[in-house]
């Protein structure tokens, strides 16, 4: 299938899913009709719209980052949550939020997330490089996730927040509940800017898939492009996690599902993975609201239910191939 056709199709699905997500909630509301009662407008545009917008943005960022990391590290299991980037972003955001630094400036919360993410992307790259085995990357990610998870719990405990327990769960599993347009506004610009940086690197990732030397002979400055991808992923994932917590597996599942549709060139995969990630999270967020009891389930539960088995499947397939 042609990439543009796939993109057009995904865009249509995303549009339909978004409208459905606006309409769906505790009661059905028609987002296209104008209502009489004031509560309809508040529910639609102040409560549901920010959720849908964040699901699109965060899903897009995570799908895109997964595709980009898989291309950059040439590793089919790379994903911001698996290699520990999301957890570090959460730690950065946690430190900023619970120390009260978040009220210093409008951008301090996403900045905390981005600093955490940046630190971990560099760490992962140094640990794994572009030649590491598939599994050493996963193991490093596991260690980072465990360590950072403990640090998050520690910071929340020191902050002596009465809601520490449930907030640990929020940061480790992620949720769009009770997010507002304010969150879209403070994190959106960084998510978009980071994603644009990653998208410009498509041709470099194409060249890189033929090998590092080939990429260099094709005229790409590897040093420069590597930093563009790493910086873009850190900025977008850091900002995304700072307003939604750590929603796992999106960057792993989406590129793998879409690769058969667009082929193996990373460049084509970047755009469609962004759209696919957005669709996945819009649908997952709807599902989470539909199946939850009185206390809303965290979004990461749904993505892990999908992503976990998928992860195992990829590992098994990977083991039987040359990796």
């Amino acid at each position: 299938m042609k990439t543009t056709a796939v993109m057009a199709m995904l865009l249509l699905v995303l549009l339909a899913a978004s409208l459905l997500a606006l309409a769906h909630g505790e009661v059905w509301l028609n987002p296209l009709a104008t209502g009489e009662e004031r509560w309809r407008d508040t529910v639609l545009w102040e409560i549901r719209l920010p959720r849908v917008m964040l699901a699109i943005l965060v899903g897009g960022v995570l799908g895109l980052s997964g595709a980009a990391l898989q291309g950059l590290l040439r590793n089919p299991l790379a994903d911001p949550s698996i290699v520990g980037v999301s957890a570090c972003a959460a730690l950065g955001a946690v430190i900023v939020l619970y120390s009260g630094l978040a009220s210093l400036a409008w951008f301090s919360l996403p900045l905390g997330g981005m600093l955490g993410a940046g630190l971990s992307v560099v760490l992962v790259y140094l640990l794994a490089g572009s030649r590491s085995s598939v599994f050493s990357l996963i193991l490093a990610g596991m260690a980072v996730n465990a360590f950072v998870g403990a640090l998050i719990a520690l910071v929340l405990n020191v902050a002596s927040n009465p809601f520490a327990m449930s907030e640990i769960v929020y940061w480790l599993l992620g949720s769009f509940a009770n997010r507002s347009l304010q969150d879209v506004m403070i994190a959106g610009p960084f998510m978009l800017a980071g994603s644009l940086a990653v998208l410009t690197a498509g041709r470099y990732l194409d060249a890189l898939s033929l090998g590092e030397e080939t990429a260099t002979t094709l005229g790409f400055d590897p040093q420069r492009w590597r930093w563009i991808v790493v910086g873009g992923v850190a900025a977008s994932v850091g900002a995304a996690v700072s307003v939604s917590g750590n929603i796992g597996f999106v960057g792993l599942v989406v590129p793998h599902l879409l690769r058969p549709l667009v082929g193996h060139e990373p460049r084509r995969l970047l755009w469609v993975s962004a759209l696919g990630g957005a669709i996945l999270l819009v649908l997952a967020d709807m599902l989470v609201q539909a199946i939850s009891g009185r206390v809303e389930l965290k979004l990461g539960v749904i993505t892990a239910l999908i992503g976990g088995p998928f992860f195992l499947y990829i590992i098994m397939r990977t083991r039987s191939s040359e990796w």
Partner: peptide, 10 residues
């Protein structure tokens, strides 16, 4: 400062 309190300032 907490996520729990953010809902009150929605």
């Amino acid at each position: 400062d907490s996520v729990a309190h953010q809902a009150l300032r929605h």
